[in-house]
Simulated scan of single mutants.
Amino acid sequence: MVEDIAARIEKERRLNARMAKGIQDNKDKANFFAQKGGKMRNVAKKMREKIEKMEEEKVDTRKEDKTIRPFTIEAQENIIDDILTITSYSIMQNHVEVHKSTKILMVRRNHLQIQGPNGIGKSTLIESIAKGTSEGSHIHEGIRVGYYRQDFSTLNFDETVYVSLTNALVESGSEVNEGNIRSTAAQLLITSDLIQSKIGDLSEGQKGLVSFARLVLLKPGLLILDEPTNQSHKLPTHTSHRQGIK
């Protein structure tokens, strides 16, 4: 009996070790493709889905361990003027880029949801607005932008979680306070061990938690979310205005 149990444990250990290696290999590839942009991001997305399945098979995670306490992403203070103006945008229709005119003015407490079918260019549009490269949109001076991407390419995979969160606090203009960093991390299930890990080594769900922790510390004046509920940790959303692109 003892020998049977020992053999089973050893078999499971070897299986987990092989799966861990496979998971890490796929993480490295997904991180690489995510940084490349374009069609490579679709490859990275499929690889992340594969990674999630492998991690679920490897680790038995209790449901209560995935519960996130309510948290608030506070807004940048002292915003008086307009935040974002959009006068035009580009989308893809039948593989052809089409330019559209619009008139959107975002001020404090406004919400905008961009809707449209897959492949029309929603993520590309959102990215161009966030990075300030869209000719038809203008983020007003002094506005701090918080940008959540579904592929986490806004994160530096070579940084540790702690360094990434510290940088977010610096970007906010706030004094670096380790207690604030660690309490924010803990609120989003980022443990004291995890906070010292490299972001590239994290699971997709954990990268999502780091992204949200950064936004909490950043206190953005303009919060841009690209499919924030794609990951396993579901979060509530609220939208008061919708803009369809078609």
Score class of each variant (00 low, 15 high):
1 M>K: 06
2 V>S: 08
3 E>F: 14
7 A>I: 07
13 R>I: 03
20 A>M: 05
21 K>F: 03
25 D>N: 11
27 K>I: 04
28 D>L: 12
28 D>R: 13
31 N>G: 15
34 A>N: 06
38 G>N: 11
39 K>F: 11
51 I>R: 01
52 E>F: 01
54 M>P: 00
58 K>Y: 01
59 V>L: 13
63 K>L: 09
64 E>K: 12
70 P>M: 10
70 P>Q: 10
71 F>R: 12
72 T>M: 10
74 E>H: 11
78 N>M: 02
82 D>C: 01
83 I>Y: 01
87 T>W: 00
89 Y>W: 09
91 I>F: 01
95 H>R: 09
96 V>C: 02
98 V>L: 07
99 H>R: 14
102 T>Q: 00
102 T>F: 00
112 L>D: 05
115 Q>R: 12
117 P>L: 10
117 P>D: 04
121 G>M: 04
128 S>P: 02
131 K>A: 13
134 S>A: 15
136 G>F: 05
137 S>W: 04
138 H>T: 10
139 I>Y: 00
141 E>N: 09
146 G>R: 00
147 Y>L: 05
150 Q>C: 09
157 F>D: 06
158 D>A: 12
162 Y>R: 14
163 V>Y: 11
163 V>A: 11
164 S>A: 15
165 L>D: 08
165 L>G: 06
170 V>K: 11
174 S>A: 13
179 G>E: 14
183 S>C: 04
183 S>H: 08
183 S>P: 03
186 A>L: 09
187 Q>F: 00
187 Q>T: 14
190 I>P: 01
199 I>K: 07
203 S>I: 05
203 S>R: 03
205 G>K: 03
207 K>W: 03
211 S>H: 14
211 S>K: 07
213 A>H: 14
214 R>M: 12
217 L>N: 09
221 G>E: 04
228 P>L: 12
233 H>V: 11
237 T>I: 15
238 H>K: 13
240 S>E: 14
240 S>Q: 09
242 R>A: 13
243 Q>T: 00
